[in-house]
């Protein structure tokens, strides 16, 4: 998974082409930690079709708020720089994420 930060979010996601998945997580967020291995797993399965990325929002708070992300975890899918779907907090389960990915491949 490509590691994003506040300097490359713009170029990698907002100016990116095609489908990009972003895992928004944060320091000390236990549910985020629990979810991450599942997303890593999905990146192995679908990584050739969708670009998988992750952003530590603790170090990129303004970027996250700019994306209307104010709670974690969030798994979002962007298409050509536009956020088209996201799963927030309890909705962000491995099953729901896989189902969301399948809609766009």
């Amino acid at each position: 998974m490509l590691v994003l930060d506040k300097t490359n979010f713009e170029t990698e996601v907002l100016q990116g082409e095609g489908y990009i998945l972003v895992d928004f997580f944060g320091d000390g967020c236990a549910p985020c930690e629990a979810l991450m291995p599942h997303v890593e797993e999905l990146s192995k399965k679908y990584g050739d079709k969708i670009k998988f990325t992750k952003l530590n929002t603790t170090k990129a708070r303004r970027v996250a708020i700019g994306q209307k992300v104010l709670g974690l975890p969030v798994i979002a899918i962007y298409k050509d720089g536009e956020k088209i779907e996201e799963l927030v907090k309890e909705d962000a389960t491995p099953e729901n994420i896989e189902a969301m990915i399948k809609k766009y491949i």
Binding site: G26, G28, R61, V88
Partner: peptide
């Protein structure tokens, strides 16, 4: 607005509200 300002987990989301 859950995850958009409404939260049930301070350790998860407190940092957004610095």
């Amino acid at each position: 607005f859950t995850g958009k300002g409404v939260s049930y987990c301070a350790t998860c989301d407190a940092a957004f509200f610095e």
